[in-house]
Design a protein around this nucleic acid. Structure first.
Lengths: 179, 179
DNA sequence: GTCTATAATTGGATAGAC
DNA sequence: GTCTATCCAATTATAGAC
């Protein structure tokens, strides 16, 4: 793995588990096992780190949308399935960027809205009804909210959501929308 | 309004619209129209501000749960209705605290989980089924996530969620759970 | 490509005047 | 109860050695 990727991983991981305030250049460098100077060779500023993360999100999102569009069980089920926290690459990038968005980072807000709009487009296409599509999008948002709150990792949680349990709910919404 | 409340409002408002990083003592004092020294007379530290906000949330949550439990249209509909962003006092406090929770603030995480557990309890009582209750909670979480992303205020948004539209979805879930 | 040293600025907090 | 002045630590970023 390139040093650049390792630094981006460290940045993302700290955002996820410690939040913005604790995600300092010193902390990122330490997490990645390099010095601050080393970090700044690859990313000339903190903003450059943010932009790197946004690029990564867009890349992962492209792959995700392709899979979602051609998912055997349909986009809606795919979306809810994959919104349950599994610690996957896209999940991690998405929740990390959501932290930036909450700091009023314009680029991050655009990226988040872009992602959610495209997910919603695929869901709407399948469901055929706007409000049901919104509800399914919101279910996924809720799962991301939950992940963001617990820092993406909280092994002591008792009330974890399970994809297996939630999918029948999605089926009900789909069936009702078609009826 | 007491100076204390004005400072707490300023703190909450900055958390909501600017995020953690921008919510400095200087910024809070300026927003409230006092000096840093003035602020620190009422709240001896930044942590004291956070604790003040948590107290406010617990207070508002108590009122909300009482209303939710006795809502004419039932707890589930009440919950989704009131999770749509209206800029109400509880909404604002909840989303502001969610920002603290994302900074791994232990007290904030506990408060959030406490709130969500109690909301879920009331919903489960009405619905009678665990997974449907979870889905309704997630719908509300999704609405909060959306609010948190846009800083609670983004008049230029085109894709705003409406309580009127979403309530039929809740009705479907309730009906299906009872069938 | 990575490090150390350091500059410049900001943030949280204290002391003491009014 | 509010303000100004000030201190110290932390943070971003630069310069230059290796």
């Amino acid at each position: 793995m390139s040093a650049r990727d390792a630094l981006l991983d460290a940045y993302q991981s700290l955002l996820l588990t410690e939040g913005q305030r604790a995600t300092t250049l010193t902390a990122v460098a330490a997490e990645a096992g390099v010095s601050k100077g080393g970090l700044l060779y690859h990313f000339a500023s903190k903003e450059a780190l943010a932009e790197g993360l946004l690029e990564r999100l867009d890349e992962l999102l492209g792959e995700d949308l392709a899979e979602m569009a051609s998912a055997a069980d349909g986009p809606s089920r795919y979306y809810v399935r994959t919104s349950v926290w599994t610690g996957g690459a896209l999940d991690r990038a998405f929740v990390a960027v959501s932290q930036l968005a909450q700091e009023a980072h314009a680029g991050a807000r655009e990226a988040m809205n872009r992602a959610r709009r495209r997910w919603l487009d695929l869901i709407r296409e399948e469901v055929g009804e706007e409000v049901t599509a919104q509800a399914i999008l919101l279910l996924g948002d809720g799962l991301y909210f939950d992940a963001a709150l617990s820092g993406g990792t909280d092994p002591e949680r008792e009330d974890v959501f399970s994809a297996m349990d939630l999918l029948p709910i999605v089926d009900r919404l789909l069936a009702a929308a078609r009826a």
